[in-house]
């Protein structure tokens, strides 16, 4: 495959990567807005407009940079590292097209590693600020992460066993070739496991409630409490991108229809639209589940995540059994 890529192919490939990046940078905040909106409507309020997160980002970007005098360079670099790691993950993952975007680098282990390094950067920043809240948030985030990351990895491993490759484009395209796989038990199991992980990774109810600033329940919010201005904007953007990326990835892994398979730019645009639609449906479903669930007490969170991990292991074993 790599040998076959011409300069034009490379251009198209880079174009596709850029398109994905733009789609997620814009789409992630919109998805966050959508979730807030759905919750508001379910509670009988009108709620802020869906584009509110984008407006917030613009406002934050125009503000002045303020650093606490106790912080080091880690604090300043972390938001950039977060956004950059997510951006690389987005660029190499097949979201709008199965066209091998950056050769064979779109390995699922690479993607999981990139996502993880973003989380680590944020946790370091939380510790670096030296405040009680920051440290608490970081330690909680790492507790959850230590459980969630293996589950994420194992759940995706189940998919790669089925497809016979850990290369994401190949997983997606072989799913397209075998639509019967969608209803196989290992798919369903790893789907549930991935949903659990994604919910905890992106800080949604029932694991974390992003709209609260109550110290007892804060996880992600506590880490970013010291940020302000453009850097807070970057952190929020990074989180929104990660949310959008994970949902889009799950949507593509399990419902790959509509993804562009050639190098036709029109196909890319269609793929973007369909990806948007799939992701919106998925997010709506998750949010509806979240609304009906009370937030878990913090010490129940490990139970949920180990549950996710077990489901992922189950998916792998089932995959081995039924192969």
């Amino acid at each position: 495959m790599i040998a076959g890529i011409s300069t034009i192919g490379l251009g198209v490939s880079i174009g596709a990567s850029l398109l994905q990046l733009i789609a997620v940078v814009l789409g992630g905040p919109l998805l966050m807005g959508l979730m807030v909106k759905i919750r508001a409507r379910a509670e009988g309020r009108i709620g802020p407009p869906i584009r509110q997160p984008l407006l917030d980002l613009r406002k934050l970007a125009s503000k002045e940079r303020i650093h606490s005098e106790h912080t080091s360079v880690v604090f300043a670099v972390a938001p950039i590292a977060l956004v950059a790691s997510v951006a690389v993950a987005i660029a190499i993952t097949p979201l709008v097209s199965t066209f091998p975007v950056l050769g064979r680098s779109a390995d699922l282990f690479v993607v999981v590693f990139l996502i993880l390094s973003g989380s680590v950067a944020l946790a370091l920043a939380g510790l670096d600020s030296g405040t009680a809240f920051g440290g608490m948030g970081s330690s909680r985030a790492m507790t959850i992460g230590a459980l969630a990351e293996p589950a994420l990895l194992v759940a995706m491993l189940a998919l790669s066993i089925q497809a016979g490759s850990s290369n994401l484009p190949e997983i997606v395209s072989s799913t397209l070739a075998h639509p019967g796989w969608i209803a196989s038990p290992e798919r369903l199991l790893s789907f549930v496991a991935l949903l659990i992980v994604v919910i905890s990774e992106t800080g949604r109810i029932p694991v974390d409630n992003p709209s609260t600033h109550l110290e007892l329940t804060m996880v992600h919010e506590a880490m970013t409490l010291e940020y302000a201005g453009p850097e807070l904007g970057l952190v929020l953007l990074g989180q929104a991108m990660r949310l959008g990326f994970l949902f889009a990835l799950v949507a593509n892994l399990f419902f790959p229809w509509g993804i562009a398979s050639g190098s036709n730019p029109a196909g890319f645009l269609l793929g973007t639209v369909i990806l948007g639609a799939k992701t919106v449906v998925l997010v709506t479903g998750v949010e509806l589940i979240a609304i009906s669930t009370a937030k878990l007490r913090l010490f129940r969170v490990p139970e949920l995540l180990t549950g996710g991990f077990v489901l992922a292991v189950l998916a792998v074993v089932t995959g081995l059994v039924t192969r």
Binding site: A183, S184, P185, E186, L188, L314, T318, T322
Partner: peptide, 11 residues
């Protein structure tokens, strides 16, 4: 497929 699904559900 049916068999796989139903037995998976048992576990």
């Amino acid at each position: 497929q049916m068999l796989e699904l139903a037995s998976g559900a048992v576990l």
